[in-house]
Design a protein around this nucleic acid. Structure first.
Length: 201
DNA sequence: CCTGCGATCGTCT
DNA sequence: GACGATCGCAGGA
């Protein structure tokens, strides 16, 4: 099932654009995790945009700078992984020109190849259509063995990177649906913005 | 130093 | 549908 496009790494310029556009453009693309045992190849089917200084849901609202958010000020294409609820990781990629601390959160993936490797990382029961395998930001990090120790601050555009975004089969704009973002009730007037994007598998 | 809590998940009812 | 797990980080003293 693997096609050539699923390993063609997206270049830096892809990430050097507006965050909302990238969040949509990442749908249908591939996320590839390279390990000694083999490649795990997935299709991105849900994302969220976090618009930095202008977005109360974002860690860098008002250009806030802390140890954790340091990664968000790196150049586009940088991987931002942080720990949430003391036990789960969330995977993001930095967007916009360097210094504009914006990011796209990867929320859901569908497996394409290396499925046995992916399943080995998940102890729960996997339902039909791989339901439960990678349908959440914490789950997909477990499934692909993504931790902040391994990937936070790493460059997804570096040809040697073990985690990267690839060409894949970009979604047609007509199949993309927009929703409110999840788990950001504290974000006041920004909590209802339609910055979550999904496609069907 | 001390406190409160989160861009979540799995289990149980 | 509800809830507990679990800890690094942020903010304040």
């Amino acid at each position: 099932m693997t096609s050539e496009n699923q390993l063609k790494r997206l270049p830096r310029d892809f990430f050097k654009r507006t965050t909302e556009g990238i969040a949509k453009d990442l749908l249908g693309r591939s996320l590839v995790r390279r390990t000694k045992k083999g490649d795990m190849i997935t299709k991105i089917i849900e994302t969220e945009a976090y618009l930095g200084p202008n977005d109360k849901a974002c860690h860098t609202y008002n250009y806030k700078k802390t140890k954790r958010t340091k990664t968000m000020y790196e150049r586009p294409g940088t991987i931002y992984v942080y720990l949430i609820y003391g036990m789960y990781h969330c995977l993001n990629v930095i967007t916009e020109p360097k210094g504009e601390p914006c990011a796209v959160l990867i929320r859901e993936l569908y497996p394409i190849d290396g499925i046995e490797l992916i399943k080995e990382n998940r102890s729960v029961k996997i339902g039909k259509n791989y339901k439960n395998l990678m349908d959440g930001p914490g789950k997909l990090c477990m499934a692909l063995d993504i931790t902040k120790e391994k990937f936070n601050g790493k460059d997804a555009c570096d040809p040697k990177s073990k985690l990267f975004f690839a060409e894949g089969n970009p979604a047609n704009p007509s199949e993309i649906k927009a929703y409110k973002r999840i788990g950001i009730d504290y974000a006041e007037e920004d909590k209802d913005r339609l910055l979550r994007f999904k496609i069907e598998k």
